[in-house]
Design a protein around this nucleic acid. Structure first.
Lengths: 229, 229
DNA sequence: CGCTTTATGGACCGATGTTCCATAAGGAGT
DNA sequence: ACTCCTTATGGAACATCGGTCCATAAAGCG
């Protein structure tokens, strides 16, 4: 039995009708719970009390669905309004960390934020970065290269740090995984891997967010000295 | 008809026997030609004149196969011996660019280099970075965080820049794709996207490698000023 | 000359992304 | 009110995939 559909007289969709937004929202819930491999059109359809075919009317394929879901997650970084008065560097830092935290809460999304941006929230991210970069006093012809570089750092490094968590199961596994990796490093030949064999304790104890901010601060330091020589 | 197998008296594998290396090599060839979606155990088996089941004796599953292939590609960055005497910064820059170029020639690999490293060549990359960072005069307790940050920049930003090329088909499509994206940006509301709407020509004309080196140089600048205040 | 190990490869299973199509509910025009 | 037409819907069906199973055979070993 088909559900009610079409628009109500007030222009809004009826309560039980499907829509792109509803589908993406349900997809995010499934991705959070089961990971990318757990998201299935059949399961998603069952959650929405419909069949797989109906979903394809609103979404062209699975790739697009996941991309939309990831962009939606990226948008969580913009829920708070941008703090009005602060230095460009401080604004960039806050923005970068907001993105990292947003992706951190939905690890599957990290590897699906693509460049160059085409979806709404990815565009907003780059635009905000560009606006802040323009405030640094850097010559205008370098704005694009520097802004995209910062954008790529934020999404790319977040993906590197966060994505492994999507394949592994829970958060408690992190310690076990790091311990196992550290053990592996310890068994390497110090002649071939002089650095790794002496930094295994750092590996065990490190904080993911600190790793992200360490590189970020180096990058913004470089930006600062380049803009104000 | 099963192929000859086992080791020859000299300890080497017979010419037509399967091996992990041969399978990974054939997988790389297929990935280069058809992309990640084109790599199939059936097709790979046909290329090697065997059945899908035989491959699973040498490789546990497809994820591992792709990871091995990507690590093999990463190793292309190390074929040239490291230049002996140069500053740590110059060494890091050369290493980073070598990795970018290696991944650039096999775009599918870019999104499969994971952190923290466990496979051979990913480990070598981090170790070389760490050894170079240790030469900068940075305090030892910061070596790990800074080295991993640089490592994440190299692989993460490379993935951001290169990975889209794996989904798109050929290299000639790049101009068309950028033109289409630029057109999309031009149609945005300048009130909402002040930066993007005035940088569409930069988008059309930009060079991917320059984008990578721009951020890299900012990062290394920051490293330099931090190490030598 | 048997016995064990190391492979091999084809059949098979379950599941997935996607397409197809019969069908139904509004809206628009008359 | 009656007839199209557009917008959806949802279940069946299709092609294909990753992965498992197992009968089988070559090489090594005693």
């Amino acid at each position: 039995m088909p559900r009610t559909r079409g628009r109500a007289p007030d222009g809004k969709w009826r309560a039980d009708a499907l829509s792109r937004e509803i589908i993406v929202g349900a997809a995010i819930a499934l991705l959070d719970e089961l990971g990318e491999r757990g998201l299935t059109f059949r399961l998603l359809a069952k959650q929405l009390n419909t069949g797989p075919g109906a979903l394809y009317w609103h979404v062209t394929n699975k790739d697009e669905l996941v991309a939309l879901a990831a962009d939606e997650v990226l948008g969580h970084a913009f829920t708070a309004p941008p703090p009005p008065e602060e230095s460009a560097g401080a604004g960039l830092r806050a923005l970068a960390i907001a993105v990292f935290d947003a992706l951190d809460q939905h690890p599957w999304a990290a590897s699906h934020v693509n460049a160059p941006p085409t979806l709404a929230n990815a565009l907003r991210l780059l635009d905000r970065i560009g606006t802040l970069v323009a405030r640094t006093g850097l010559p205008a012809e370098r704005h694009f290269a520097v802004s995209t570089a910062i954008s790529y750092y934020i999404t790319g490094v977040s993906a590197q740090i966060i994505a492994p968590r999507a394949t592994a199961v829970a958060a408690t596994d992190r310690d076990a995984f790091l311990a196992q990796t550290a053990e592996h490093w310890e068994k390497l030949d110090p002649a071939d891997y002089p650095f790794l064999t002496r930094t295994t304790t750092d590996l065990r104890d490190h904080d993911d967010r600190d790793q992200f901010t360490t590189g970020l601060d180096l990058l913004l330091d470089g930006l600062n000295t380049t803009a104000n020589p």
